[in-house]
Design a protein around this nucleic acid. Structure first.
Lengths: 246, 246
DNA sequence: CTTAAAAGCGTATCTCATACGCATAAGCGA
DNA sequence: TCGCTTATGCGTATGAGATACGCTTTTAAG
């Protein structure tokens, strides 16, 4: 490192800011290669299957070769998190804020559906990777004409990120659980609750169980449940904008 | 297992529904002991430090003894998830729905702040543990007088859970990141962004950076940021209730 | 041509989860 | 009281995984 950027190592890593080596053997691997291979492993067999050994094998290298390019497995996970969501597409021109944010949210959820393991990666700080920042940028841009202050825009987008990340986590985990044990949802869930929910201890819940909501074998439906909550949130944003610009 | 409950094994585990053994050696451990010890380890050193060996050591038993009470480590994690949040307190009488839900959310966030590792546990299905169900019940109860249909109540609570879980994840992870590297937040974050954010590529973001929002050393403030988004969501719920009951 | 910096990688260590089987203890029927 | 049955406690072993260390190979700079 001779370059004079005093940026955090993590940022330099994500942006590929390493000074080009002048001496020494030519690298047969790049950070990008390693990241791509790791993402492929995760896509194929889940984040739990990502080991330095597996990634190296996929690249035709020995395990320890990877450590010349990433400091640790955690480094690699950071890279994967940015790589997997990919760059945010530009939002269609001329949409008002609500339509734009809805498109944006669908974009995020679609990207996460492609790589469901992303939601299990550690979040170690505010977004710094290029792709993450591009998504952040687009969401801010969607609020460009809303009349909100910059501060409020950040708040709205943070809240949206929070919601979307919670939603993605819940829905991908539930979908995974459903896959491996469909019985545990729907009817069987209703039966389990009925067996265990005492009206004294769980008054509201037992009323719900009695109402028969759980008697059908309906799996969790992301499209319905997820967007229901999202729309409530956006209604709240609309109210905020109303208050602000009135 | 001679008892005639055809409940999923996981449910029986969480509710302690095992038929009392009539023969054999007296157990020196209980599932509750193991769960408690595991929670203590996680509280002290994080979820990553929870290993069967460490938990057993804390109990003065050998590692493999635990497996007589818990099928796998994953079983133990399920138990921890329910144990850590604890039972939901009864909500104060006579609050209207919004005040009640706000109290409820604070309760959840407080509980999670005590055991930040909970948000990293896998979610394998809908809530079945007694404590989780009690929280679910209280939230439904808070909406008891709102005039919403049972279906809508479930939707509202699901959305709230989604938001809160996203919020807790983000804030605990950021808080942890802040702990171990305060530099990466505030001023240094601003500097990193400034170095890396190109106005062409990130128009909205670079405007934000230029506005100086990141020039202060302000850490992430859960109380402000988290409840900002929450209130937006609740505003949306209010609008829904308005629409419904009008 | 020499040399120093990098890259690739074999080996070794340490930590984990967990399968297996034996030893121990406790209630049960005779 | 005497085994018999059944659970529990746990020692040992296996296999996976992260990563430290140091040797070897490659390549550009002097």
């Amino acid at each position: 490192m001779t370059e004079e950027n005093d940026l955090p190592a993590e940022v330099a890593l994500l942006w590929g800011l390493r000074d080009t080596a002048r001496r020494g053997r030519k690298p047969s691997l790049t950070v990008a290669d390693i990241t791509r291979a790791a993402v492929e492993v995760a896509d194929a067999d889940g984040i739990g299957a990502v080991s330095m050994a597996k990634v190296a094998e996929r690249l035709g290298n020995a395990t320890m070769a990877l450590y010349r390019h990433v400091k640790s497995k955690n480094d690699l996970l950071l890279l994967m998190a940015d790589a997997a969501i990919g760059p945010a597409p530009a939002l269609p021109e001329g949409l008002e804020w609500r339509a734009a944010l809805t498109v944006w949210v669908r974009g995020v959820l679609d990207a996460l559906r492609e790589h469901p393991w992303v939601v299990h990666l550690p979040i170690s700080g505010p977004p710094v990777g290029p792709n993450n920042l591009s998504w952040f940028d687009r969401a801010l841009g969607a609020l460009g004409d809303s009349g909100l202050s910059e501060d409020s825009k950040v708040g709205v987008v943070m809240g949206l990120l929070t919601y979307v990340q919670g939603e993605a986590r819940l829905s991908t985990d539930l979908a995974a659980g459903y896959q491996e044990n469909p019985e545990a949802f729907g009817r069987q869930y209703g039966r389990a609750l009925a067996a265990v929910v005492d009206p004294e201890r769980f008054p509201a819940l037992s009323k719900l169980v009695a109402s028969g909501v759980f008697d059908a074998d309906v799996p969790y439906d992301e499209e319905v449940d997820g967007l229901f909550g999202l729309n409530l949130y956006l209604d709240g944003v609309a109210a905020l904008i109303e208050r602000t610009t009135r």
